[in-house]
Structure formats: C-alpha cells, structure tokens
Amino acid sequence: MKDVAARAGVGLKTVSRVVNGEPGVTPDTEHRVREAIDALGFRRNDSARVLRKGRTASIGLVLEDLADPFYGPLSRAVEEVARAHGALLINGSSAEDPEREQELALALCARRVDGLIVIPAGDDHRYLEPEIKAGVATVFVDRPPGRIEADVVLSDSFGGARAGVAHLIAHGHRRIAFVGDLPRIHTTAERLRGYRAAMEDAGLAVSGRWVSLGPTSPDRVRAAVTAMVTGPDPVTAVFAGNNRVTVTAVRVLADVGHPVALVSFDDIELADLLGITVVAQDAAALGRTAAQRLFRRLDGVADLPSRTALATTLIPRGSGEIPPPADG
C-alpha cells in the first residue's frame, strides 16, 4: 500500500478509502490511485482485513433448488450487492429438505460467513438463534422463518393469486382449478388462500375436486390437471401455483382437445411467445432487497426485524383470457 500511495502521490488513508470503496476521494485522485494499483499489481489482503475488522467479507445464500430458473435472478442480485460491498457470495441448495437446509446453514456459519440469506425449507429456525446472537446477520427471503423473529423479504403471494384468479373470473370462468406445491410451504398456503379469497369474493363455491396440492413432479401434476379438465364437471380454467406446475400444465392442456384457460403464478421462459398469462414476481428485487437488508445489519443497523412484501404483476398474454365454453 505504501508503494501505491507513493506512486499516486497520496496518503495511505486515501489508498485505503479507494480500495475499500469508501467516500471522500475525488474522481481524479481515485483515478490516480487505481492507475498505481494496476501498474504495481496490488491486491487487497483480505486476511488482514479479517484480523482487523473481525469479518470475513463473505456471506452465505441457502437456496431451495439451484436448478430452478426462479432462483437465478435472485442469486445474481444477491451476488451483485455483495460484490458492491466487497464481499464474496457462497451458495448452496437445500433441495427442499429441512435437515439439509440446517446442515448447510450451520456449515456456512462454521466457515465464519458474516451473514446468511436463507430461503426456508423447514418451519423451525431456532437452530440459528445462537449464530444470530453471535453476530451472524440473517435475512430470510421468499418465505418467513419458523419460530424465530428475523428480517424477511417476500412476494405478495396472497394478493398475486387473488388477482390472477379474479382475472379468470372476470373472463367468465366459474369452475377454476388450483394446482400447487406441497401444502406445508408458505407460498403454497398463501396462494391457495388468495385463490379461495377470489372465489369467495365472486360468490363461487370451491369443489374439493378443483384443488390439488403435492410435489411438483411432472407425473403428479399431469395426473391432477388431466383429471380436472377431462373428468365429470370439468374445470374451464387452471391457476398454476408456480413455474414448475405451469410447465407441466401447458403440456397437458396442449393435448386436451378443447380450450382451457390458464394463469401461472410465476413467469416462465418463452411465456411471452407461448401467450401464457402470468402473475410475475420480481425475483431480482427479492434478492436485492434481502441483500441490502443484510448489509444494513452488518453495518450496525439494530432496528426491529422487518417484514417486506413486494408487489406482483399480472401480465395478460392470452391464455388467461380464453373464454369458457357456452355451458361453462
């Protein structure tokens, strides 16, 4: 650092400010310092920073499924915020297994990450209480934590589902199916609640045959959708509870032989080209908001845990506007 300071004609403190992204340096001075850094091949010593500040400049992200397209923009947004704060992001997948989530989160803590962002798979997060008390900042995203108070950033699953089903009702549908994920998952429960609220708002009773919850495996979803659209008193519209349900539902409805309306909670790739009406979440905003909240905690903000719900957007593209048959 002394060599950089000498070459740029500035003090050590100025070099430190540039390296650590701190304010108080003019653009011209920052340019000279960065030129000196490049010329001398200077690299910041993060080990020294850990000893000096007691932090590792790393955060952990526990996702549900690394292969799920929804989590790509979320993870990238978290990484961008972390990078802007000079921190490294380490992520892993719980595969929707509560035990694996706990194992992964505690392994990240054992490696002394400064903070955690967790998409919960389980419903009891008291195992993180000792880590939080020890100073590991923790924010939950997409779903709330279980049995502890902590910051959480969510999409408005209830409001989004209510709007999506109301859209189908406004286009004449009265027999509307809901096909969702496992009932223990918070987002599933909230979207089902929104579906029921929209039906109740319209004075429509819900048949037990119109609701199917369970794993999002193609076989299970295919069987559920097929039974609903071809069985006795078939539904005329389907509300798909997430992107994985939607992909299978699109394939089933393409082979049914008669038009069935569809609204998806979650946008999917090529949905615009396929004309699929969706209730879109902003996955990048979820990740960015959660990461910003995490770094506020790491910067010493000690206010009460907050709950932030981001709005969803209904995007009509055609599939949700298909009218029911004359007798529907």
Score class of each variant (00 low, 15 high):
Val179Ala: 08
Val179Asn: 08
Asp181Phe: 15
Asp181Leu: 14
Asp181Met: 12
Asp181Thr: 12
Leu182Ser: 13
Pro183Phe: 09
His186Ile: 00
Thr188Phe: 05
Thr188Gln: 06
Thr188Arg: 00
Ala189Met: 03
Glu190Trp: 06
Arg191Thr: 04
Arg191Gln: 04
Leu192Arg: 06
Arg193Asn: 11
Arg193Asp: 15
Gly194Asp: 07
Arg196Glu: 15
Ala197Trp: 11
Ala197Gly: 06
Glu200Pro: 11
Ala202Arg: 03
Gly203Cys: 08
Gly203Arg: 00
Leu204Met: 03
Leu204Lys: 01
Ala205Pro: 00
Ala205Phe: 03
Val206Gln: 02
Gly208Ile: 00
Gly208His: 01
Trp210Pro: 02
Val211Cys: 05
Leu213Pro: 03
Gly214Gln: 01
Gly214Ala: 04
Thr216Asn: 15
Asp219Ala: 15
Arg220Glu: 15
Ala223Leu: 08
Ala223Thr: 13
Ala223Glu: 15
Ala224Thr: 02
Val225Asn: 04
Thr226Val: 03
Met228Pro: 04
Gly231His: 00
Gly231Val: 01
Gly231Phe: 02
Gly231Asn: 00
Asp233Ala: 10
Pro234Leu: 04
Pro234Asn: 02
Val235Trp: 11
Thr236Cys: 12
Thr236Asp: 12
Ala237Leu: 09
Ala240Val: 08
Gly241Trp: 08
Gly241Ala: 09
Asn242Ile: 07
Arg244Ile: 09
Arg244Lys: 13
Thr246Asp: 10
Thr246Gly: 10
Val247Pro: 14
Ala249Gln: 10
Val250Trp: 12
Val250Asn: 08
Val252Arg: 00
Val252Asp: 01
Ala254Asn: 14
Ala254Gly: 12
Val256Met: 07
His258Phe: 15
Val260Ile: 13
Ala261Trp: 13
Ala261Tyr: 13
Ala261Cys: 12
